Simulated assay, not measured.
Amino acid sequence: MQQKPTITTLFLDIGGVLLTNGWDRAARRQAAATFSLDLPELEERHHLTFDTYEEGKLTLEEYLHRTVFYEDRPFTREEFKSFMYSRTEAYPEMIELVCKIKAKYGLKIAIVNNEGRELNEYRIKHFGIDKFVDFFISSCFVHFRKPDADIWRIALDIALVKPEEVLYIDDRAMFINVAEGLGINGHLHKNYEETKKKLEDWGFVVS
């Protein structure tokens, strides 16, 4: 008889795993072209302030005031925000895989991600991630960003699990390394097929 898996909980990133990245370099490049913005200026202002937004210490309105609307523009904030939201697409195979594993094996599912509040809530609700995730340990909610190890410590406390009971899936190697340093099992997500095989290796087999 196959030994029962020791994993009780999955920690998942959103961007790069369940959905495309939200407001990444490619999206900002597209925004600069669409709205005729100076890309180097946008990038500099973004990098000076985005960490603060992701930590939940700025609203999206404040972030946009610092990065785009510090001067008059021929477009509205709503037009720009709509563009930002529209950059996200789902990875339906990954979402379906997680949902099937949760339904079959009763695992706890927790999100551990870096995201600003408004973008985070839009992405979670629009793509139905709140329908199968038990906990959201998002940087904007807990005021810690990966790779700060405290965000994983908070996730462990909220989920009430030991590190060895967790499999953490992320597309950033550094974040996997930090989590593994806390005793969490890590898997670097590259594609659906490899991650499905990793989950099967842990005993989570779904058709």
Rank of each mutant, 00 (worst) to 15 (best):
Q3I: 06
D157S: 15
Y85P: 09
E96F: 06
G186L: 04
H47G: 11
E164R: 11
L156K: 01
G183A: 12
I176S: 05
V142Y: 12
R172L: 09
I184H: 04
L64Y: 09
L60D: 07
E180F: 08
A31Q: 07
V206W: 03
L58E: 11
V133N: 07
L199I: 03
N185S: 11
V205N: 04
L19G: 02
V98D: 12
L182N: 07
Y192S: 00
E93F: 06
I154Y: 02
E78T: 05
L48Q: 15
K81F: 13
L188C: 00
G106C: 08
E194Q: 15
R145G: 01
H46D: 03
N177G: 13
S82W: 03
D72K: 14
F136Y: 11
I101D: 07
H187E: 02
A149I: 14
E41W: 00
P40K: 10
I129H: 08
R77Q: 14
T195R: 01
T88Q: 03
D38I: 08
F11R: 01
P74Q: 04
P163N: 07
R77I: 14
H189Q: 10
V17R: 10
A173D: 13
L156I: 02
L182R: 12
Y70T: 09
T49I: 12
F136L: 12
Y63P: 05
R66H: 08
G106Q: 08
Y85D: 04
L199F: 00
F69Q: 02
E121M: 12
R123T: 08
M84P: 00
I109A: 07
R87V: 11
H47E: 14
G116Q: 03
S36R: 11
E96R: 14
I124S: 06
N21V: 02
A179I: 07
T8C: 03
T6E: 15
F75P: 01
L10W: 09
E44G: 11
F35H: 00
I124L: 10
L12A: 12
I137W: 09
V178G: 12
V166T: 13
K131L: 15
L48F: 04
D148V: 08
A110L: 01
D38P: 11
G183Q: 10
E44R: 15
N185A: 03
I184R: 01
T76Y: 05
W152H: 13
